[in-house]
Computed example of a mutant assay.
Amino acid sequence: MLDGTGVFTVRSAYNALLTQALGTQQIRFTCVVWKIKIPPKVKIFIWRLFVNALPTKEQLLNKNVALQAYQQRCPFCNDALETIHHVIFSCCYVDRVWK
């Protein structure tokens, strides 16, 4: 029984798992993301960015997918491992696109 009603719901299970994995402060942020009036695909992108769930080479390596060294690099700058942080915040090529 994950909520006060004693009835199992997918939402209660999701919230319990999210609390366990992320903590309460991050849960508040994810709730805010879903309430913002933006297109659903943007909400999903922001949420996946926040919970480190965007598909990157780093994610493949974490799941033990064998990649050659050259395949692990950022496809835009070919300078660093393709991580969410690199692609969104520190890639010089993507920085020019954002600007």
Rank of each mutant, 00 (worst) to 15 (best):
E82T: 08
I38S: 03
A53W: 13
A53L: 12
K57F: 05
V65H: 15
D79W: 06
L17H: 06
E58V: 05
R96I: 12
F45H: 05
R28W: 08
K43E: 09
I36P: 00
Q26C: 01
R28I: 04
V94A: 08
K43Y: 06
L61C: 08
I88M: 14
V33M: 03
T56F: 04
E58G: 03
L17D: 06
I36C: 00
I38V: 13
Q59W: 12
K43P: 06
C92G: 06
E82C: 01
L22N: 06
K43Q: 13
I88L: 05
Y93C: 10
E58S: 06
N64S: 10
R28H: 07
F45N: 12
I44C: 13
C92W: 12
I88G: 02
N52K: 12
V87Y: 01
Q68T: 10
K41A: 09
I46P: 00
L60Q: 14
V32I: 02
E82R: 00
R73Q: 04
K37W: 02
K63Q: 14
N52H: 13
G23D: 01
F29D: 14
C77G: 02
N62V: 03
F50G: 03
D79N: 10
Q59L: 09
V33E: 01
E58A: 12
L17F: 02
A80M: 14
I88R: 02
D95K: 12
P55T: 08
C31N: 11
V65A: 07
E82V: 06
V65K: 07
A21T: 11
C92I: 13
